[in-house]
Amino acid sequence: GPIITTQVTIPKDLAGSIIGKGGQRIKQIRHESGASIKIDEPLEGSEDRIITITGTQDQIQNAQYLLQNSVKQY
């Protein structure tokens, strides 16, 4: 399918649970989903961080599912 980009906003407090120790968790999510995932640095004074996910519809759905699971375990 076509490559698309979607953005998800997360509270910055949850960023740690998604990134994992030394970036292990986010690497695993990238690997498992096949999507490209970029977590922006939090904006000055903002409570949120923006996650940019790029890939096919399937890859993005996979990545979103894995991201949600990471947050739930936290």
Rank of each mutant, 00 (worst) to 15 (best):
I3F: 04
Q57C: 02
Q68Y: 03
S33C: 06
G55Q: 00
I60N: 14
Q68S: 12
D40A: 08
I4K: 02
Y65A: 15
I29E: 01
S33P: 00
K38I: 08
Q73N: 13
D48A: 05
H31S: 12
P11A: 06
P11Q: 06
I10S: 03
N62M: 08
S36C: 06
Q28M: 12
S70D: 13
K21T: 13
I26G: 06
T52D: 08
E32Y: 02
S46A: 09
P2I: 15
T6H: 03
D58E: 11
I3V: 03
E44M: 14
V71I: 06
I51S: 02
T52A: 11
N69M: 06
K38A: 12
Q59L: 01
D40M: 05
I51N: 00
Q57F: 03
G20H: 05
I26E: 06
I18L: 14
L66Q: 13
E44L: 06
E44W: 03
Q7R: 10
D13E: 04
G16H: 08
I51F: 15
N69D: 13
G16Q: 08
Q57S: 09
G55E: 00
I51V: 14
D13K: 11
A35S: 09
V8A: 02
Q7L: 02
Q73M: 13
Q28F: 14
Q7S: 09
V8S: 02
Q73Y: 13
S70Q: 12
V71A: 11
G34P: 01
E41L: 08
H31C: 10
Q68M: 03
K27R: 12
Q64F: 01
K27W: 05
T5L: 01
R49G: 07
G1P: 02
L43T: 10
G20P: 10
P42V: 06
G45T: 10
K38S: 10
S70E: 13
V71H: 03
D13Q: 09
I4R: 01
Q59K: 09
I39C: 10
I18D: 03
E41M: 09
A35E: 00
D40W: 03
Q24P: 11
V8Y: 03
I19M: 13
Q24Y: 10
G34E: 05
G1M: 05
I10V: 15
G20N: 09
P2Q: 15
I18Q: 06
I39Q: 04
S46K: 09
T5K: 03
Q73G: 15
L67Y: 01
K12P: 15
Q68G: 09
Y65D: 15
G22C: 11
D40C: 11
S46C: 07
K38E: 12
Q68P: 09
I29T: 05
S46E: 10
G22P: 15
L66A: 08
I29D: 01
V71T: 08
G23I: 06
P42A: 06
L43C: 12
K27C: 13
Q28G: 12
G20S: 12
K27Y: 09
I39N: 04
D40R: 04
L66M: 13
H31V: 05
R49N: 14
Q24W: 13
P11G: 07
A35Q: 00
D58I: 06
Q61N: 11
K38M: 06
P2N: 11
Q64D: 12
D48I: 03
K72L: 03
P11C: 08
Q28C: 12
D48F: 04
P2R: 10
E47N: 11
D58T: 06
N62D: 10
Q64K: 13
S70A: 13
Q57R: 09
D40L: 08
R30C: 12
Q68F: 07
